[in-house]
Amino acid sequence: MSHPDAATGRLVFDGQCGFCTRCVGWLRAIDRHGRIDVQPYQAPGVPRSIGATVEQCQDAVQWRGADGVRRSGAEAVNAVLSAVIGTGAPSTLYRATSGVQERAYRWVAAHRGRFPGMTPHCQTHPAECAGTGPE
């Protein structure tokens, strides 16, 4: 995982999804400064830690940044990228193209099982994914 002390925000993803696990792997690779804390929503207390429900986390990736605002879906992806690369460019682009990006995000999310993935996080780290019940 990332270093929560240095992190500027927390990204919550579906740890049972191979495609999602691959995507957060790419994100970790470009997060050279440890700006994000990446956690599966299946870990106990993680949804609550960002002010989300399990159902919201099941529906879309969630991000809670240093500003304390929780974002989901394509907006979350852009906010995370902004934090990782240290510029607001992705979030600015999102504001100009949010409708298209959200539709694309929803389509990818609905078909994520068809995209190349890897062994899901919760399969390789089962102790971290112990709780998926109501928060």
Rank of each mutant, 00 (worst) to 15 (best):
A29W: 11
A29D: 14
A29G: 13
A29Q: 14
A29V: 06
A29K: 14
A29P: 01
I30T: 06
I30W: 11
I30P: 03
I30G: 13
D31V: 02
D31M: 03
R32L: 14
R32T: 14
R32Q: 13
H33K: 15
H33T: 11
H33G: 08
H33M: 12
H33V: 10
H33I: 00
G34R: 11
G34D: 09
G34E: 09
G34Y: 10
G34H: 08
R35E: 01
R35T: 02
R35L: 05
R35H: 13
R35Q: 06
I36T: 10
I36R: 02
I36Q: 01
I36W: 00
I36A: 11
I36Y: 00
I36S: 03
I36K: 01
D37S: 14
D37A: 14
D37L: 06
D37T: 04
D37I: 00
D37Q: 10
D37H: 11
V38W: 03
V38K: 00
Q39A: 14
Q39T: 08
Q39E: 15
P40K: 05
P40A: 10
P40G: 02
P40M: 06
Y41T: 05
Y41G: 00
Y41F: 15
Y41N: 05
Y41A: 07
Q42M: 09
Q42K: 05
Q42P: 08
A43R: 12
A43G: 05
A43L: 04
A43F: 02
P44N: 12
P44C: 12
P44I: 04
P44Q: 14
G45S: 10
G45D: 13
G45R: 08
G45E: 06
G45C: 09
V46Y: 03
V46F: 06
V46E: 03
V46C: 04
V46P: 02
P47C: 13
P47T: 13
R48M: 12
R48Y: 08
R48G: 15
R48C: 09
R48A: 15
R48V: 08
S49L: 04
S49Y: 01
S49D: 02
S49K: 04
S49R: 03
I50P: 03
I50S: 03
I50A: 10
I50N: 04
G51Y: 09
G51K: 13
A52M: 13
A52N: 08
A52L: 11
A52D: 05
A52Y: 08
A52E: 13
A52K: 06
T53P: 05
T53C: 03
T53W: 05
T53S: 15
V54D: 06
V54R: 08
E55Y: 02
E55K: 09
E55H: 06
E55T: 14
Q56F: 09
Q56P: 05
C57G: 11
C57V: 05
C57L: 06
Q58V: 11
D59Q: 12
D59H: 14
D59Y: 07
D59S: 15
D59F: 01
D59M: 06
A60H: 04
A60Q: 12
V61W: 00
V61A: 11
V61H: 03
Q62D: 07
Q62E: 09
Q62F: 12
Q62H: 12
R64N: 10
R64E: 05
